[in-house]
Design a binder for these strands. Structure first.
Lengths: 248, 248
DNA sequence: TTTCCCATTTGATTTACGTCAAGGCTTCCT
DNA sequence: AGGAAGCCTTGACGTAAATCAAATGGGAAA
């Protein structure tokens, strides 16, 4: 763990609820010394499970690099993704002993973990942590509500277009712009993971991706590499009110 | 407004993020004097809209009595409910100027409102308010995620059974137990509102309610009055893992 | 290179739910 | 009493997506 600390550059913890100043191993001012005792980094390989729903979870964490998912599973195996965690996103709930969802690394993943008890203590003494956490939780709640509209009312085609747009908007690290203004990035999810995100089967996901490709809404190279020639067109296909949260 | 203040008994603000001690018109200790200047009550009739999505919203609020919903609407009219607010639930987001959803009173409704600016100021100076709000927001996020599983993966029959179970669990005010242990309450939603909650059409809602009635899972008198003879049976029909959050 | 494995695509068929349409039951209004 | 307007239920039919079943393709191992 100490090794990993050393390898993390100044800002890699990004927007995590404890400001990076207070977290980054390179910084030595203010709260750092105290924090050093309660945080550590942990790596996971793609496909590995971070925690199982119901398991004891004595830490909270922030994604540093990679992508993780939260999923719920019914007894008969039906699965629904309920959270998609990109760098700087927060996992775990202060004041709860056991995980409520399966947390899985979908790519190689590095998380910045805080032992729960001292983290909770710190929240009481350091107001901005709680404030930041509230802000992030409210953002997640908004995202969850948009997701509910998608799950409850959108067609399969709209769902796929929405997901592509969501990924294009959120995953700034993978996003590039060509000279012509097209967006280019890699889908970080398999077809099955997309299906779990969207409440569809993987066959339907595949068919609708083929259809969007055929219609020129997206351009695919291989299975993962996507180009979006016209983002407004994609948003239309997604059924979203105009450009709610357009890329700059 | 002053009249209404007088009519509210000591605890009616229930579990709202500002403890009732600090809110209730009858109390005169501690923070109350300061708070009096920034809070007020407001009543709405069943069916009335509290705010439209996009409208300026210069207050945050807590439901005192009655039921409100948050809904999202697509351009072509498709609607999805994304929040069901019962007494003590919180509406509005500190740090956001405009409403993100339509807020509608589905029954007669009394809300306890706080002007936003002073509320935000108070959050900075009074930590327990932010802490309580974080806790409530995390609960809502959990509820949203359970809701996502429902929308994405459950059958129409499971959706109806789930909704009935959710209402039976949450709406303590309307809930009664017969000598035999059956639960009795009134559905606070029309068939159409249920459909908006569940991502179904009202016809499908009606058919599935009829089916659950036919199969003895629920007993209906009139259109709204429900008896649940066997709550475990209902949970089975809902496809939920055993009794996650059973009534005491 | 060849083979195997797994993710993905595509096709054929079924089905759950949506759509369209009609009719019943309350409650309210004149 | 007689509409009229809301809700709700029920029926007939259509369709989007699920299910079942091969076929394809690309990367890793041998």
């Amino acid at each position: 763990m100490a090794m990993q600390d050393m390898q993390l550059a100044h800002h890699e913890c990004g927007d995590c609820p404890i400001r990076h100043r207070a977290v980054c191993a390179r910084c030595e001012a203010d709260e750092l010394t105290r924090l050093e005792q309660i945080k550590y980094y942990r790596s996971y390989q793609a496909g590995q499970t971070v925690v199982w729903s119901g398991d004891r979870m004595d830490f909270v964490a922030s994604v540093v690099t990679g992508i993780a998912t939260l999923t719920q599973t019914m007894e008969d195996g039906r699965r629904q993704m309920v959270g998609l965690l990109l760098p700087s996103d927060f996992v775990g709930r202060p004041g709860r002993a056991n995980a409520a969802y399966d947390v899985t690394a979908t790519t190689d993943l590095v998380m910045c973990c805080f032992r729960k008890k001292p983290f909770e203590d710190m929240m009481l003494t350091t107001p901005h942590i709680g404030q930041r956490l509230l802000e992030m939780t409210l953002d997640e709640l908004d995202a969850a509500r948009e997701w509910m509209l998608l799950l409850g009312r959108k067609t399969a085609r709209e769902k796929i277009a929405s997901l592509v747009a969501i990924i294009a908007r959120r995953d700034a690290t993978l996003r590039l712009k060509t000279p012509k203004g097209a967006l280019v990035f890699d889908l970080p999810l398999t077809r099955e993971e997309m299906a779990d995100y969207l409440g569809l089967t993987l066959e339907t996901v595949s068919r609708q991706i083929s259809a969007l490709k055929r219609d020129g809404v997206i351009v695919l190279e291989g299975k993962r590499h996507v180009t979006i020639p016209d983002f407004d067109r994609l948003l239309e296909e997604a059924g979203d009110d105009s450009d709610g949260g357009m890329i700059g």
